[in-house]
Amino acid sequence: MHSQKLRKILSVLTQIIIYAILFLLAASTLLPYVLMVSLSFMAEFEMYQLPPKFIPTIMRWSNYIEMWQSQPWGRYIFNTLFVTVVVLLGQLLLVAMGGYALARMKFPGRDFMFKVFILFMMLPGVVTLIPGFIILNSLGWVDTFMALIVPSLGNIWGLFLMRQYMLSLPGSLEDAGRIDGANRWQIFWKLILPLCKPVLATVGTFTFLSMWRSFFWPLIVTRSKEMRVIEVGVAMFSSQYVTNIPAQLAAATLSSIPMILIYLFAQKWIVQGIKMTAGYDR
């Protein structure tokens, strides 16, 4: 009786400790974000007050007005949204077709091609930066939507994910389709693709997030303000010697809203994506 009580107390204590650790981890993850939002309403000198204040004494909405008026944010949002949506649709189509070809079709060099793709995943981005830029320049695509969209259409990580998923689908499905007179495209489009919704959602979610956050490539391949994207706009509040921290935090807060919404609606696919690619880096 006594030992049962002790066990119960121990179990409750363990639960409390686990929850306390989880709470601390969650708080440490959320704190920087909360701080970013809070600081975006302060003047710079208020950020340095001791003891630090987490809730602004005065809500300085003027930081947001200053941020909004200083740059063409409407244009940046349109560019980011347009590029993200086009890349998202293009990537999903391409990785699905590519994954299908690599998983379900037999042709010479298929496995070698897959290995080459995997090899390319390991190349650091900086290696392909100048060659990529030269190609775009020779095509006359620098400072156009083509430069922002076309190089992002390929997604080896997504291709890999699709291939692996399609390999797990039973071959009898395709046989049944063939018996019913479906051609290769119909089998892919009407039989295989609908079954790949979970993996398509995962790839789509990650693509959206990575395109929304993309910074360095758009910085390199765009020149005019008209072609810039949100993340580049956020960086515009830092000049060589001075950073307008409140305005930059206001811009960062605004730019994070779509990502938070996406996370709220698509957290299932994000978690699934992390599980499916455990051990692989994008």
Binding site: I130, D143, L219
Partner: peptide
């Protein structure tokens, strides 16, 4: 005139990429 503002600390990387690419 096209005005190109690159505020990131990779300013010189961007300029040298342009020079390296012949543009």
């Amino acid at each position: 005139v096209v005005y190109e503002a690159v505020t990131d600390d990779r300013y010189y990387q961007k300029v040298l990429t342009d020079i390296g690419a012949g543009t």
